[in-house]
Each structure stands twice: as structure tokens, then as C-alpha cells.
Design a protein around this nucleic acid. Structure first.
Lengths: 205, 205
DNA sequence: GGGCACATTAGACCGGCGGTCCAACCCGTG
DNA sequence: CACGGGTTGGACCGCCGGTCTAATGTGCCC
């Protein structure tokens, strides 16, 4: 977490720092990103940076929080599907997935940041930040799965943790694959249902 | 690739270097591993290390190649299923998966290395090494998928590249989940068919 | 056996990294 | 005006991966 002082800064200076950090992190990934370059680009001194943030990881986590937060905001709130029937359940998820991918496609640096975030999973320096975001996402995942089980859309014979891992893994793989292709609205609209269909088949009772 | 000179070294010194590197890489992951520590632990000088290897990435790739090579050797050759019928096709794959996981379970450092290898995917310093291993694995994946399609076990309405990505992602997620659990032979034997079953459902026509 | 050429080794050195530290400066208050 | 806490600049630290070269083996030819 940034120190409270950071939020007292003039908005434009906060922006300058966050912008520089987003550029650097999305362009190089966490490990290869240089805090010194961010500091230069933001036009502040090292002392100030460490006066506002605990260090590189803290800055990264904050940028990710802010940008991914904006992303989810732009895509609307997480729906916890209340469907009583499998088809309805899965179509709710399809809609949401489409909204997220659309939002991502409209902002390449954020997409790069998200990609980096999701692949940096094993980095020991990031456990803290990862856990934090995981903790924010997990309850939703769990709720969604339980709702799915209630709608008879999701199997009950496998530990929830494993289901989450698998969905996460499939989603990640699909996202990565998507991001390496040309992303026009048309194909996206065609592919997302295919993706959800595969997840659906894997999870169905 | 290590320089040819490396292979002319007395076997025990090669072993010392590879052992030190395996310990360090499996314990810290690629980024956090320290080449200097490996050098100290192996009891050689920096000059020698760089005389035998191009650098950190080269050493890592070599260790991974050797250790994962041993792993696959221990698990027997990649089967390209020749089944003519879905059930036979999937049971061939189940057997193989079980053999690999068994081999992994018997050697924690190699398991850690494999975990690190698979999660380090986005590291720009490793693209070379990643591509190399991918190139070695891809043809087998493709053959297996095509064989699966021939056995009417795998759908044909989705690009092969996407299928591979999804299978890879699911496999990775399952592996990671497995490695965070207690790995006794019993549960493994129960879980692997469930995994393969999920992959099967996602891929079936 | 002596001299030479080449393979090998040791480790000082380089720029850059993330992170620490403290003197100097700014600015509101008494 | 003087003080004192909030803020800033940037020198400094230990470590990183990587380079370079002088010294040291080592085997071969005359």
C-alpha cells in the first residue's frame, strides 16, 4: 500500500507517477522493469519515491490495483449469477467475459499489465500482492461456482479449489491465446462462446 | 547451450556445477536465483563459469533440459496414441500422465524446477530457452491431437493452436494444484483420471 | 629438455539494480 | 524571526549479471 501521504499529492503528480509506472511495468514486466527509470520518467527523486511507496513491489501492486480496478469498473460489477438453470448461468458468464475482454482490448498497456500480472504468479517478491488480489477475487469465484452448482451447471464431485484452479488456468490460456491473435470485435464475439463452452463442458456435472 | 568444453570436464565437476545450479534454481526460481551463489557452491570461479556457459539463462536452460530430460526418460517415451476409439485414446494419456506425475513426486527439486519453468513463461530473458522446449514438445502435442481427432476423441471445430493452449493451460493449472497438495500415490491415482476426464470433456467433439 | 602456443582459471572491475540514509530545504506556526 | 516537522535530493550501500586480462597450466614440436 502506498503511504497515505501519496494521496495528498496534487492529482497531476500522482498521475505522473502512476503513468510512468504503468508504462514501465506493462512494457517490461515486473522483474525487468526498472524503478530508477520510473523515478526519472516521473520526474521525482528516489527519496520521494520511497517516501510514498514501500518499494518496487508496493508500487507495482498499487498500479495493478488501480488499473485493474478501473478495468472491472468499466466492465460493470461482477455478476454473481442467480440463474436457476444451466443455460442461463453460462450465458451470464459469457456476457461478462465479453465485457472484460472488450475493455481490455481498448487499452493495450492495461492488457499488457494484466498479462504480466497473471504470469508473474511464481515471483517470490510478489506473493503479498498476489495474495491480496487473489483474496479479492476468490470469494467471487467461490460464489459463482456455488451458484453454478445450485443451478446444476457445475459438478460437485471435485474440490472447489481445484475447479477454481482449472477455470483460472483455462481462462489464462484462452486470454493469452486471444492476445496473440488479431482482436476484432467480430471474432471475439464468435470465440468467447466457444471458450465458455469448453469451460462449461469441463465443469458440467 | 553450454560450450563443448563443458562436456570435456571431469564428470564429477560437471555434476558439482549442475547440482549447485539445480539447488539454486529450484529453490529460488530463475529471477531470484543468484549466479554468484551457484559459482561459490560449485567451487569454481566466475571466469570458469562464463568459459563453460553463455550466462545465467544458458545455465538455467541446460539444467532444465538435463533434469526434465531425465524425468521424461524415467517416465518412458512419449506415446503417440494409436487408438482407434475415444476410450482407448484417453486411457493411454491417463497412463502417461500418471507416470510423469509419479516421477515428479519422487524428486522434489526437479518438481520445483518444473514448476518454475512452467510459470516463468513471460520472462523476456527466457524466450530462447522456452521456445526451444516448446519446439520439442509441440510436435508431440500436435500428433497427439491429430491422433485424437482420428479416434473421434477430439473436436475439429477449433484451431489446433487454441486446443493446445487450452490443454497446456489446464495441465499447468492441475499440475500446480497437485504440487501444492500432499502427493501420495493413492490420491494421485484417484485424481489423474478426474483431470484427464475434464480435459476430455473440454476437447470432445 | 626448452620454448612456444593454446586452453583454462582467477578475480578485479563495470554499469545498473533495489534500497537506505541524512543533510538541506520548505513552510506553517508561535 | 526562529523553530520544527514534513518533504526532497542524491550520495551511498551491497549485490547483481556480465566482461576482461594477466597469470597459470598443459601438451606438443624442435
Amino acid at each position: 500500500m502506498p503511504r497515505p501521504r501519496f494521496h495528498k499529492l496534487p492529482a497531476e503528480q500522482q498521475q505522473a507517477i502512476l503513468h510512468a509506472a504503468l508504462e514501465e511495468f506493462s512494457g517490461h514486466g515486473f522483474n525487468a522493469a526498472s524503478l530508477n527509470r520510473i523515478i526519472d520518467a516521473a520526474g521525482i527523486s528516489k527519496g520521494s519515491m520511497y517516501y510514498y511507496f514501500d518499494g518496487k513491489e508496493d508500487l507495482y501492486a498499487h498500479v495493478a490495483r488501480v488499473e485493474l480496478g478501473r478495468l472491472f469498473e468499466a466492465a460493470g460489477p461482477f455478476p454473481v449469477p442467480s440463474a436457476r438453470e444451466p443455460n442461463a448461468f453460462w450465458s451470464t458468464l459469457t456476457d461478462y467475459y465479453l465485457r472484460i475482454m472488450g475493455a481490455l482490448a481498448s487499452s493495450p498497456p492495461v492488457a499488457a499489465l494484466a498479462r504480466g500480472w497473471v504470469t508473474a504468479s511464481a515471483n517470490p517478491a510478489l506473493v503479498q500482492a498476489q495474495k491480496e488480489m487473489e483474496a479479492a477475487l476468490l470469494p467471487w469465484f467461490e460464489q459463482a461456482l456455488v451458484a453454478g452448482q445450485r443451478a446444476r451447471a457445475v459438478r460437485k464431485d471435485v474440490p472447489t479449489g481445484l475447479l477454481i484452479a482449472v477455470v483460472f488456468g483455462m481462462g489464462q490460456a484462452m486470454d493469452m491465446w486471444l492476445m496473440t491473435q488479431e482482436l476484432d470485435e467480430e471474432t471475439l464475439r464468435k470465440l468467447v462462446p466457444v471458450f465458455i463452452g469448453m469451460i462449461r463442458k469441463a465443469l458440467s456435472p
